[in-house]
Every structure is written in C-alpha cells, then in structure tokens.
Design a protein around this nucleic acid. Structure first.
Lengths: 197, 197
DNA sequence: GTCTATAGCCAGATAGAC
DNA sequence: GTCTATCTGGCTATAGAC
C-alpha cells in the first residue's frame, strides 16, 4: 500500500468519526503510521484531504442508487432492491450516513459540488415512473416526492441517528444490527403495503 | 433581557449552526453583542455553555413526545398526533434535529446524560400498547420497534438531512416547507395504511 | 458586571536535513 | 519521499482595570 493510500484510509476513518472540524491532522498521521508533514506533502492541506475523502465516500453510494432507480424494474421492485442493497452497504460502512449528513449541513460549499457530480443520485426518472404507475392504477394517489422521502427516511435515518436510536428504543449494538437486518425487507413491505391499490 | 440570556440565545444559534467543535467563542460573543470575557464570566467555559444549550434543546423536545406516547389514545391517534405536533415544532426550530444528532454522534459522553434525563422519551408504554393492539387484531403482526423506527425516521429525517434532501429531490427552501406541511398528515396516513388490518 | 489586553496552548502548515 | 524541528495563527481562558 502506498503512503498516499495509507493516509487516505486513515483520514477516511478519522474524518468519519470526528467530522471535519473535530478531526486532527496529528491523529490522521498517527493512524496512518507516518509523519504529519507527509499529509501536507501528499494532500497540500486539510481541506483538500477532506474533500478527497468526502467525495470518495459519496461516490461509493451514488452509483448504486442510480443503477437501481434508473433500471427498468417496477416501482415496487425498485423499492425492494434499494432498501435491501442500501442497508447491506451501510451495515458495512456505518459511519458513512452521519458523516455525509453532518458535513453537508456544516459545509454548504460541498453541497454545490455534490450537486454537479456526474453520478449524483437523480430521481427524475423514478418520479416519472411513479406518476405513470399512479395513472395506471397500480399505485395510490400520492405525491412522488413524499414517497421518495419516505424511502430515504426509513432507510437512512436509523444509521444517521444510530446513537440516538439506540438510546431511544434501548437496544445495544448487537440488537441494532439484528433490527437492521430485519429492516431490509420490513421497509419495502411497509411502504408497498401503504401505497398499493 | 439579561446578559446571560443574550449569551444563551447567541450560543444556541451558533452551536446549532456550527456544532460544538465548529463554534467559536468569539462568534458567540459578537452575536450576543458583548465581550468574549463575559462568556467565561457567566458560563465558566465552552463545554458548560454548550451543555446548557444542548440540554435545553433536548428538554424542549422530550416532554411533548412523552405526553403523546403515554396518553390513553389509540396507537393510530398517537401516530397522528405525534407526526403533526413534532413537524409543527421543528418547522419552527429547523436546526434542532441535525444539531442533536450530530452532537450525540460526536460527543458520546452526552448520550449517557441524556439517557438519565428525567424527561427522556420513553417508548416502553407505547411498545406494550402496540403489542396489545396486535393481539386484539387491530394492527398487523409487526415488530413494535420497527414501527417506532418508521415513525421517527419519516418524521425526523427530512429535517436532520435537510440540505441533502433538498439537493436530492431538487427543491428550494419554500418547496421544502410546503412538503413538510403536507407531510404532517402524509406520514400518519402512510403508516396507518401499512399496519391496519 | 463589563471591558481590554494578554497569557498559554494547540493545530495547521512550512523549512530544511537526509 | 520521509523525517525533525519550528513557525504562525487562532482559539480558549484569565488577569486586572474600571
């Protein structure tokens, strides 16, 4: 593994746990097992290092969302596939959702760059498809944007607010992940039940 | 308004926008229109000032949740009342959800204090009630904890991830709040549709 | 109680040897 | 490319006048 890769991985870990302003260059250097000066040699400054990490994190999530949303499956199948594959992914990367949400709220300048990203999750096609299936009588009358929000909310929130959730419903780490496993099909079942005619 | 109140309000605003590590004592002082030294005179240090703000924020949310969850209404009515009053509240305080979630993720030491808070949202009674209504055949077979998560997710997430959401479904500030208004009844309708027998 | 001035620290960034 | 040593700025916190 090259030094640059070691730094990147360390930065990935520290930024996701502490956020941009909470992270320390020293800690990243220690984590990478190299010297602080190397960070600046390889990535110029903290902001650029952060941006590399943030964009990489985002780029991992976006394409698989688009792949599902823009396939030619039915709306119901897209919902099933999305919840299953998204939850599977974040179970492996539990720091990702809180990280992205936190930094988008704190660094509005990143939002714009994300919006112009080539692989930006784009729900345009899915929204049109929902409207079509409503017209065909497959799905109840509903605001497609609310439906999208429902899907994102139920899927992402438990991970974004993991600490809060564990405290609220009083479960430990193990029970949390069991609940998330169950959630892979729970969510699609709930939503489809609610919107099918 | 006393100086202490001016400081508190300014701190409230700055902490919610920047988070603990992003906030600057100087900015809080400027916002309050007083000198930095007064912050330390009134609140000793940054951590104590933050804790005062955080606990106040939390204390605003918790009681009304409990009041609804522990009333003697039906599960369906509790869902209707919760989504309506929670969304009404956070429309007025849109910085609250991301703030609480971010700081709970970043300062695990606060979690414990929150868990011991006298007004902590406690879903025990509601969970028992859900189980009872399942047994009575009013509600479908479902894991009560998943149902709670569904309610919290659909209600809180759009505010917690406001910036992300606006970017994803491409709406502006105004459209966002219109969507949230509609969401007050949309959520309960969706959930009740999904779980009623 | 409120201010100015400053101490003291810590983090990001750089210089320069190897 | 990698290190040690150091600079510089900014931030929390305090001392002390009024």
């Amino acid at each position: 593994m090259t030094t640059e890769e070691k730094i990147f991985e360390a930065a990935h870990k520290v930024f996701q746990q502490k956020g941009f302003s909470g992270a320390r260059m020293q800690e990243i250097a220690d984590e990478a097992g190299i010297n602080k000066a190397m960070l600046h040699y390889c990535f110029k400054n903290k902001e650029l290092l952060f941006e590399a990490v943030f964009m990489k994190a985002f780029a991992q999530l976006a394409p698989q969302i688009n792949e599902i949303f823009n396939s030619d499956a039915s709306v119901f199948d897209k919902i099933r596939r999305f919840t299953d594959s998204y939850i599977s992914f974040v179970i492996e990367n539990p720091f990702l959702p809180p990280f992205i949400i936190q930094e988008m709220n704190n660094n509005p300048e990143f939002v714009e760059r994300f919006l112009n990203h080539k692989n930006r999750p784009n729900p345009t096609i899915l929204i049109a498809q929902i409207e079509k299936e409503i017209a065909e009588g497959i799905i109840k009358e509903i605001n497609p944007k609310q439906l999208l929000l429902d899907i994102f909310s139920m899927t992402i929130f438990p991970f974004a607010a993991q600490v809060l959730v564990k405290g609220m419903i009083q479960i430990n780490e193990k029970e949390f992940f069991e609940l998330m496993e169950q959630r892979k099909f729970h969510i699609s079942e709930q939503i489809i039940n609610a919107i099918k005619k």
